[in-house]
Design a protein around this nucleic acid. Structure first.
Lengths: 227, 227
DNA sequence: AAAATAGTGTCTTTTAGACACTATGGA
DNA sequence: TCCATAGTGTCTAAAAGACACTATTTT
């Protein structure tokens, strides 16, 4: 047990050692961001964007070190532009990986992020420095990046349970069928057609436009509510 | 758009500037942890532990800077022992606050945490350097600490919806009534007595022991499943 | 006896799931 | 015409919520 005066003296915002340094002057970790960028493919389902390591060997999620004056979202955005030529996204934090020995380059904390993009935004990505892999078989990834992909999918699943495409995998307008197929890819299992319509339709705005895609009766296009 | 060779050259794990420094040698942020320690009081409901600032003015959540070689959980544990004389907890990450200007002492990232403790563990806390406040009225807190409390409660509520006291606010054994009162304090609203028993009892192990607490028919003590 | 609490039976409402039917286009 | 898909009615099963009753204790 500590005497009470010790508490105030050792509070990090006032404590100074014999050389007059504050705790903030002591060694600091590098802070990195690593992002699982997910997108949707009609054939292969949910895909994750991977980038070739600088050494040329192996694949990783796009990431970078946090620069002074930058927010984490800024750093995620910068890393995606730089490593994969993808821009304009809305990253969300997932987890901080903090094992002091996780990175052989030194003391590096990594803030894992999730980002979701429409497939068209990935069409100009660097063709040889990047690849898209199914989230169910992301290949061999460095460090804890496979773990990040798993957390990203888990997060996405929870969000897609009862709301129509909250992360906007689809464009502005879509049929209920397209919406259901997207949700099935996220959920990793088939969803019931009638139940799906009845839960989602009240949360959408009908456009009145009918579209015929392939065989079968034309379907109505819906869009999201403004908010 | 960047030529492909630029990608490899600027990858953070190989890039060197004209002075041969890697990106990891560039300025790094201080990393702090701040923790909303929640506990339960029969009268006042959910309480949050606050500590007096070193300057003596104002209150804050307990926190500290991350030290080299330490995990975030280690830092949380250290800060609670040092500032409040509370130990042996199991913190969970909530969010990284990353506004470069959020702390007037410089560039400081803060990883917000939640921790839940049984009230007895707080009985030896520093009496004048700490206080316990209701989460609904935490008083004036510095920086974004009120936001951390709100996130902590929100997280707790989600976890307490359908599982019996997952964060162990209560001890080893308890009656269904005690469990329900704890859940009502977390939920911030009364819960239905019969529905609550029917959802929780199958998830508990009966001990066979009956206890009489105050008036009314004695109730059976239950305990959690081993896992 | 009165009041308070434990524990349970049962009814109603809501929701999820299942099945089936009609409607409307393309091949 | 056949087939695929859209859209809807309706039944069933499961879950949530509401109400009431009996049981057992303290005051």
């Amino acid at each position: 047990m500590w005497p009470r005066y010790a508490v105030a003296a050792m509070d990090s915002d006032e404590y100074r050692d014999s050389r007059g340094k504050t705790l903030a002057d002591y060694p600091r970790p590098s802070v990195a961001v690593d992002t699982a960028v997910l997108t949707l493919d009609d054939e292969h389902g949910l895909l994750v964007l991977e980038v070739r390591r600088a050494s040329g060997r192996g694949w990783a999620l796009p990431g970078t070190f946090l620069h002074p004056g930058e927010t984490l979202a800024d750093a995620v955005d910068r890393s995606l532009r730089l490593k994969a030529n993808v821009g304009g996204l809305h990253p969300r934090q997932l987890h901080v990986f903090d094992d002091p020995r996780r990175d052989d380059r030194g003391w590096v904390l990594s803030v894992a992020h999730l980002d979701v993009v429409q497939p068209e935004r990935l069409q100009y990505r660097f063709p040889e420095a990047t690849r898209l892999m199914p989230v169910s078989a992301p290949g061999r990834l460095i460090y804890d990046h496979a773990d990040i992909v798993a957390r990203a999918v888990e997060h996405l699943r929870a969000r897609y349970l009862d709301k129509p495409d909250p992360y906007r995998l689809l464009g502005e307008q879509f049929t209920i069928r397209e919406l259901r197929l997207a949700h099935e890819h996220v959920a990793g299992r088939p969803l019931q057609r009638d139940w799906f319509r009845r839960t989602m339709e009240p949360q959408l705005v009908p456009t009145g436009t009918m579209v015929s895609r392939g065989r079968g009766r034309p379907a109505e296009l819906f869009r999201r509510h403004e908010d």
